[in-house]
Design a protein around this nucleic acid. Structure first.
Lengths: 326, 326
DNA sequence: ATGAAAGCGCTAACAG
DNA sequence: CTGTTAGCGCTTTCAT
């Protein structure tokens, strides 16, 4: 059996409340009593149970982070920084990869209501929006619009489009393919993709959208999208898309004997570590992952600890990674 | 205020236990009573609190997974499959990236004792081994030896060494550099590295060890190791190391105008997705990540649910990924 | 400075 | 089939 606070109190000959004071370094306890209690704790090898604490304090100290795919470089990088930030602020991180399954997302929303978690950072998006409004517990959205009342973490989409367009136009590219995701939930991708098309048109280039598919985050899906792209745009000379999508296009271009960046330019959006580990560093628009993670944590804790109504969350600025692919 | 089970009981005019039965679909409840209770639950928008449940049941339903770096492809892939497996078996996943800090690892071991988690899968390794013996709560080690009593998940190291040696010898490589980690805790790397050296010697090749460093998982550390490698082994014609280390060597070779695989062969050990996303698919020894994750989950739940003493855990077999780098 | 008592929300004998 | 009772382990007034 493992010792409880009552066992310690009994052995030390004091009351539970005094033991509690010692455990939490609160109030005033005489040196002698403290000494007795500490001896008893040591003897019984006592560790306070978080379960009792949690019930009493009505909190778990856990924030859940829900993403479509835990191993995807974008999400795993976000997770890394978010966990770090949460840990620093005294919280633990629960993680969930939905792999696009609605029921999993729903299950985690229920856990939020059941107080398994104190708050959620939502990076997946298969649920209908109304679902999120049914609860008024702390939720923050990552790069997607859920409702007016749910704060969202995002980078500056217009800036991304401008920078990407600038890079390709500077190289004189005119036949562009843009790898886009299927828009199931209003997210900010659409804004970015449309702005990009408009800017390229102004520069005299035409853009063809190629869909990567719905909730597509696997290597195979990216590879298939790349094949579709080259089949559909035989004379493509510029490609823009997320890191993984562009990398798949690099492989496909290589297979087809097309040289990058001589014959075809590629700009990766996200700029996670995978753009820096190959023979060639990709030219990329880099999302500020650590800042995004910290903003997300900050927002969810503002909702939780300060009961903030609609905390502000400015779009974060991106930067260009000068690479060799454009 | 949020409704508790007592509120529901009161409104429905029944006792708490009956409400509990309905919630958990246990025992027999008359249709009429059930009906009344369900109506009350709906009216109060009742959701059972996990905090009360947890205290009563003395469990949290959470398994912690501790790794050095959440975004590293090996660990993020492991995490993805482990979370999936845990979810399927009714558990939630808490995640922690230690970034090599002992105090973080210690903090999570304490949480295990405080019952924040029901068990731990330990993929990091900065603590002294004795620390793990102080607790008899469920712990499983990932690819490292902690003690006789702690089950370990690992792949067949001898097989890895044999396959890697075979690949390089078949290409006639004689000047090999092996990227190794610093050995702080007895893990199975050492066994693999030594076997590899022996096999290569039998084949008439010499092997130089190049250390990546202690707890080295960042891009910069890999890049520096690659530079050291080429400086120290100017006539190297074969390299073996983990995915990320080998990728850094690919970049460095490219910078030095060395062609892979014509002048130099590379074999990546791990074979995670990063070996398949560049222009070139790397020749790799592939660890069975999903099987490793499932074995880890299985072991930790055997310890937890069945109180197993020393559950068996056979080393898992690896496979070769035929690539273009060797 | 310390103790008594109440209660967080739930489950599980056991009785009826 | 349902209610009573007891308690999981902790914190927190409020007295003393």
């Amino acid at each position: 059996m493992v010792a409880s606070i009552s066992d310690v109190a009994k052995l030390a000959g004091v009351s539970k409340s005094t033991v509690s004071l010692v455990c939490n370094n609160k109030g005033y306890v005489s040196p002698e009593t403290r000494e007795k209690i500490e001896r008893a704790m040591a003897e019984l090898n006592y560790t306070p149970s978080a379960l009792g604490q949690n019930l009493k304090l009505r909190r778990s100290g856990i924030i859940g982070i829900i993403v479509p795919d835990i191993s995807h470089p974008f999400f795993s990088t976000f997770l890394k920084y978010a966990e770090k930030s949460l840990y620093r602020r005294g919280y633990k991180t629960m993680v969930c990869g939905t792999a696009g399954r609605q029921d999993v997302e729903e299950a985690y929303l229920q856990m939020l209501e059941r107080r398994t978690m104190d708050g959620i950072i939502m990076g997946a998006h298969s649920q209908k929006v109304e679902r999120y409004l049914r609860t008024n517990r702390p939720i923050v959205a990552l790069d997607r619009f859920l409702s007016e009342d749910i704060p969202v973490v995002r980078s500056n989409k217009a800036q991304i489009a401008e920078l990407a367009a600038g890079l390709l136009l500077k190289r004189g590219r005119r036949h562009i393919a843009q790898l886009v995701s299927s828009y199931t939930v209003p997210n900010f991708e659409l804004e970015k993709d449309e702005t990009f098309v408009r800017l390229m048109a102004q520069g005299g280039a035409e853009v063809t959208d190629v869909s990567v598919g719905y909730n597509a985050f696997t290597e195979e899906q990216y590879a298939l999208a790349a094949q579709r792209l080259f089949r559909r745009c035989p004379n493509v000379d510029g490609i823009v898309g997320t890191d993984m999508a562009v990398l798949a296009c690099m492989a496909e271009a290589h297979r087809r004997g097309l040289r990058v960046p001589e014959q075809i330019s590629m700009v990766a959006i996200d700029g996670t570590y995978v753009t820096r580990i190959g023979e060639m560093t990709l030219t990329a628009i880099v999302q500020p992952m650590e800042a995004m993670a910290e903003q997300a944590v900050d927002l969810v804790l503002q909702l939780l600890e300060e009961g903030a109504e609609r905390p502000a969350s400015p779009a974060l600025e991106v930067t260009v990674q000068e690479g060799e692919s454009c």
